[in-house]
Structure formats: C-alpha cells, structure tokens
C-alpha cells in the first residue's frame, strides 16, 4: 500500500503521522454472518432493557400516588421486561439456527474449544491479561478460546434466565402453555421461590459480563488493530496476511487491499 492511495482527509498532517504504514498485504476475512450480527445486537439491546426493567421489578425505586386505577407503572415495567424477553428469545432462536447454518466460527462445535491446544491458548490469554503483555497473546481470527468460553457461558446463563423467566411468567396462567412447558423448572429447583432466586442471581451475570466484554473488545481493537468492534457491524475483519493464526491458515486467501471494498466472501480455509 502506498501513500498516494490514502484518501484526502488522511493527507492532513495530523492524521498522516498516525496512519499505519504499509506493511504487506491485508486480508479481509468474513467472520460473522448477518444473522449472527443481528442476533448479537438484538440480544445486547434487549439484555440492557431486561436488566434495567428487572431491577425495577425486583426493587421498585419509586411509588406512584393517588388512585391505583390511574397508574400502571409496575405493569409497564413488567410489559417492557416481557417484551424485551421475547426479543431476546427471538435472538436466541436465530443464534441457535445459526449454530447449524453458520460458518466454522459460528457453528456449534466452536462453542466448546476444549482441545489441548486451545486450552494452552486459554492459559496464554489469561497470562497475557494478567501481565498486560500483548506479545505473548496467541493470535486468533475468530474468538480466542477464552472469549469463546465466556460467550458460551453467557449462552448457558441466558438459557437459564429464559427458562426461569418463562417459568415465572407462566404462573399467572396455571395450566397455560408457559406454565406447562416450564413446569419442570420449579420442580427441579425445588419451588417457585427458588426459581426467583436463580433468576435474580443469574441476572447479575450481565452487568459483570457487559463491562468485561465491552472493555476487552475495545482493548483488542486498540492493541491488535483487528477491528473487532466493527466486525460485529460489518461482519469481517482485516488481518495481515503475514501474521499466523491459531484458528485459520491465511495462505489460501487472496490478499485484498483494505480500501478497495472488494470484500471476498468467506472461503473455507484449507
């Protein structure tokens, strides 16, 4: 890549200094299919809504006054909670479908990266986070195994939240669909109150996960320049063809200049 290919804005001195120098070829790799991206953002938004409304439902922060009939505050919060819940389930359905229809980075076997090599990579990731040293970090095109385990755990946690949530939702109509379909939940947990406890307990996964997740993807962008954040919008990421990756052999990929916009569709490596 040469300097004359840089767009006019970037020719300004301030930008110029900071732009990356040409360093070999880049490959744009298409990682995340549209269904996955859509489900990611739908889930993210609905989870934020679910957590916020859930907090209010568990601990109403203010009370209304006057006639009960002229207010529906808790009712609205609960409605918003249930609505967000249905969006989350829709996102979940798409994600489940995509576990079977997606590419190698999205399919269900990717959810449990527990090969010997991956476990070693996990330790390296942990070590790298602990020592704040990006150099020892193993390189992955897709999610690194540690991140993947975190995401898989969130899938499990969310499944628990959905099941306990619907189990409680169904109680207002005993004998109805949700009551019957999720009758096994209180049975397993030993009563409705325990269902509530579990729902409450697991809800705290999300603020914890959100802060770590958002931090780490931004950090990754900052350190690796891979464009992880944008990959969840565009679907792909640029990688240097000269780098080696644990989960992908770039040898088979044609190098594409990053600015041409000719995004190749994903070609299965090897």
């Amino acid at each position: 890549m040469t300097t004359d290919q840089v767009k006019p804005l970037a020719r300004l001195p301030w930008f110029q200094v900071r732009l990356p120098r040409a360093r070999g070829d880049f490959t744009w790799i298409y990682l995340w299919g549209a269904p996955l991206r859509v489900s990611h953002w739908v889930a993210a938004l609905s989870l934020v809504a679910l957590f916020g409304t859930g907090i209010f439902i568990s601990q109403p922060l203010w009370v209304t006054s006057g006639e009960a009939s002229s207010h529906f505050l808790m009712g609205r919060f609960r409605f918003a909670h249930f609505l967000a819940g249905t969006f989350l389930v829709m996102a979940g359905i798409i994600r489940v479908y995509w576990l079977f229809a997606g590419n190698e980075f999205e399919r269900w076997p990717a959810l449990w990266p527990f090969t010997r090599r991956n476990i070693r990579a996990m330790f390296l990731m942990l070590k790298s986070y602990a020592t704040i040293d990006p150099k020892i970090q193993p390189h992955f095109v897709g999610h690194n195994p540690l991140a993947q385990v975190a995401y898989s755990s969130i899938y499990v946690g969310t499944t628990i939240m959905i099941c306990t949530g619907f189990a409680m939702y169904g109680q207002s109509n005993p004998g109805g669909f949700f009551y019957t379909a999720f009758a096994w939940v209180p049975a397993i947990l030993g009563g409705l109150q325990n269902v509530r406890v579990v729902h409450h307990l697991f809800s705290w996964l999300y603020p914890i996960f959100f802060s770590i997740h958002i931090y780490l993807v931004i950090r990754s962008d900052y350190l690796e320049r891979g464009g992880v954040v944008s990959s969840m919008f565009t679907g792909g990421t640029y990688v240097s063809s000269h780098d080696e990756f644990e989960d992908c052999d770039l040898g088979d990929h044609p190098s594409v200049p990053w600015h041409t916009g000719e995004h190749p569709t994903w070609v299965k490596p090897q």
């Binding site: 986070y129 704040i132 409450h200 307990l201 809800s203 705290w204 603020p207 770590i212």
Partner: peptide
C-alpha cells in the same frame, strides 16, 4: 442478600476493568 452479592460483583468487575484498562 443476593442483590448485595450481585451488585458487588458487578462493581468489582467494573473496577477491575478500569484498573486493567489503565494498566494497559
């Protein structure tokens, strides 16, 4: 209480994130 635990874990996670970000 469950909420105390959950909230302190969440605050802990956020604090950890901030510290880690600063160190990075």
């Amino acid at each position: 209480r469950i909420d105390t635990i959950g909230a302190s874990l969440a605050v802990g996670a956020a604090a950890g994130v901030l510290a880690h970000a600063g160190m990075t």
